[in-house]
Structures are given as structure tokens and as C-alpha cells.
Design a protein around this nucleic acid. Sequence first.
RNA 1: GCGUCGGUGGCGGAGUGGUCAAUCGCAACAGACUGUAAAUCUGUCGCCCAUUGGGCUACGCAGGUUCGAAUCCUGCCCGACGCA
Length: 433
Amino acid sequence: MSSAVLALVFPYGAGAWYHDGNSNSMIEFTVLKRSRRSRARLGILKTPHGEVMTPAIVPVATNATVKALRSDEVLATGTQMLISNTYHLHLAPAQPHAGRPLARGGEETVAAASGINAFMQWPRPTMTDSGGFQVFSLGFGRDLGVGKVASASFPNRLERAVTEGAQPQSVKIGEDGVRFRSPLDGGEIFLGPRESIAIQERIGADIMFAFDECTPPRVMRGYMRAALDRTHRWAKACIAAKRTDQALYGIIQGSVFKDLREESAKTISRLARGGGFSGFGIGGDLGDALGTSRIGTRTILNWTVPLLDSRLPRHLLGIGKLDDIETIVKAGVDTFDCTVPTHYARRGIAFVSSKKRGGWEAADFTKAVMLRDRGPIDAACDCLVCSGYRRQYVAHLFRAGEITGGAMLTFHNLYFFNGFVARVREKIKKGLL
RNA sequence: GCGUCGGUGGCGGAGUGGUCAAUCGCAACAGACUGUAAAUCUGUCGCCCAUUGGGCUACGCAGGUUCGAAUCCUGCCCGACGCA
């Protein structure tokens, strides 16, 4: 890593390798600069495990690992904060009794290791998602075969729109929480606001998220209305259930419905004003990436962000392709998580510097041409991988089914995304965004 | 030289009289993926037109049997193994 990039990523120094101090203090968010051209802002998010320069991307470490990388490697990519998952950690480290709610959940394994930071040897800030996304991804998402963002393959499948009163097949959404089937032993997993908070407190991340219901793309309004009431009720229940002084973010839902999104922003803001939340998550269906519905992420953010207390940090849940980043930052997002850099890396896709619009392009290492390419992964990148290995080698690893290829591209992609966001911060600092 | 087994699409390998342009795997090509169900999934993959669909050439080569053959018979060529 060049010293220039290091300075952007770790302006206060990289800090000592793993040190777990007293971690039970609240977070503190400071806005350093507000753009005059947009809602973009530069800030510092202070947590018990160090500071995050915002805007920042938060790579996804669902199972207490950024898939394919060691924590020290993740650190070397310039990553400032990670987000792990309540649902997965409740299930995963628990060996034989995964089906039993709470008593023997995986969070106990994490707690016994002194929390997520020590457990995964990650010294920097962490978040835990509440499991609300799994209500969608294992429910309607799975039934409809869609992700949270409408895509080209989606319209054909939408005859089965989610209407009022609908239930997913393998997940049951109730008024007090959600019943899942454990993929490990088929046992029942019940997750509601109380359960989610209890688990997140055992995991011990700096920032927790309220348990919400993430809805699929283009839900019908009637369904969204009822789901939003649940999410709001659960938000209050999360606040009531919370015992530690970890930070808790409330989540705004409402899909593409302006009045519902506004109502949600106001409701969650009110709870934040009351001291229940120390930040905001914006989640759910964030509009059509293809633009066919004419309501995109930017529009939805423009409805909601102005209604939020500007002193508190705003996290956009699960959005962060390179093409999205400037847009969401300009709409006032401070942090965002996204699986794209890590997920795509394991599929053989590297994001590399380019003269094309946006300054990047995708390079597919599973293509045969890559086997003949003797150049570096990204000629303009100075990461550990790019500074030595050739494209043909990485392509060979993918061809041979070697996991090292995915690990190398994961490293590079995270380095690339972190550098990309660091440049966005520079633009804000210089008044260019 | 004799014998046995075998020769199928880029490769491997099914199929053993009709529903076969031919299961499947690999490779190739294209696509998808945004709070990770995912080191995954989907599509194409003989040639020529076409929207469903149609036409042509195909299962080592040449003949034959049959209404009909990748599948049966004969000869030839090639390969592996065995015996000389």
C-alpha cells in the first residue's frame, strides 16, 4: 500500500494489532465537513474499537469472516469496519444444538471468546446486522428468485407479486418475529426484536441494527403497509430489549412508496430523538437499478435523508456497487455495506482501474483470454496482489478451482473499493462532490 | 498372423432397432449476482434459416438387412490388450 493511500485510509495511523480495550462506550459521530453541492459529508465515527473516516464502505463478514481472507489481510486492504450477521452467527458456531433458540446459539461461542473482535482477531470497529435481511433473502427472496434490487431477470417473475397477507414458503413472518428453519438440522429458529438484540449483545459489535423486515422489490403497497407497522413496532421492542451500551441503529423501510418512506424516517427519527437509536439504517427495496420504475435509490434517499437528525450517522444497508457510491454519498450516506467486492471476487470478477466512465471496469478471470494475459490484475493498483501476480496466474487458479484465486481477487477488490471511497472522501474535502 | 474388446459431437463418456442432433461431465461462449441460501446459478453449445419452428449433414469407412440403424450383418481401416 502506498503511503498516500495509507494516509487516506488510516489518517490516524494503522494502530496496534489486536487490542481489545474497554469496549462498552457509545459511539460518537462528528461531521467534519458538509458539501455545498450535495448532501455529501465528511465525518468521523468514533467507536470503542477505533475511528472510521466517513463516507466508508463496510465489507461484509457474515460468518465472522470476510470470506476467503484472514482478518489481518482484511486490515491490509484498508478496510475500516466490518459487518457480521446475527442469523448466521446464531446458527454457525453452535455445533449440535443449533435448533434451540438462544440457549446454545453460536453467539455464546462468540461471547465466550470475549466478543466478535477477539473471536475473529479483528481489532477495528464492527457492526452486526440484525437478521432482518434474512427474513427477505430466505423468504420471499428465495421464493421469487430475486435479490434485493430488481434486475433484468426479475420482471418475468413478478406475476407472483407480494400482496397483502402473503407469506413466504419457508419462513413465517409473525407479529412478534419470524420463524426460520435451521439449514443445519431443520429445527425451528425464532428471531424477533428481543431475540435479535439478545444475540447481538452476546456478539458484542460496536454497532447493532434493529430487527426489521426487509421487503422484496416491488411489494404491493398493502403488504408494505403492514410490514412497515411490524418494523416500527419491532424497532421499539429492540430499544426496550437493549441492555448494553452498544450503539443501536434504527432501520427505515417503506420500499418505493414515498409516504411510507417518509413516515418511516419520521418514526425512526422520533425514536432516535428519544435516545433509543444512535444512528440510522436505510434498508429494504431501494428502487429499480434499471430505472424502469423511475424510482431509484437516489430518489428514495432524497425522500428520507432530509427527515433524519443530521447529527447522527446514516448507514445504507446493502448498496454499494462502484456505480452507486458517489450517488449515495451525495444523497447523504455516511457508511454502507455491500457484498459485491467480496462476492464477485469469488466469482472471478475483479474491479480494476480504467479510462472508462467512473474510472473502473470489471475484469472476468474465468474467461479463457485471461489465461494468455501476462499483465498485472490492475496496472494502476499497488496492492499486494497487483504488485506481483499476473493475470494468467490468477486465471489459472480459477480454472484449476483453487481457492487462492478467489482470495487474491477478494483482497484486490476490497483494496480497490476502499481506495475508491477514499478518493470520494478527498473529493468532498476539496469541494468537488 | 490369429483372437478379444473397442472406434459416438473440442475432450471424456452414455446410448445398443424407432420417442436421437444424440443423457451427463469437462472445456468454450454468454448472462445474472447490491444488509452472502451463493468459490453459486442460468442459458447456448453439428451446420443453415426462423419467433414458436423448419431444413440439411451426422455416431471410423464402404456396402447390406429392415417400413425404420449410432444400435443388426459383411468387408475394410484404425486402436488397446492377449496368444504366436
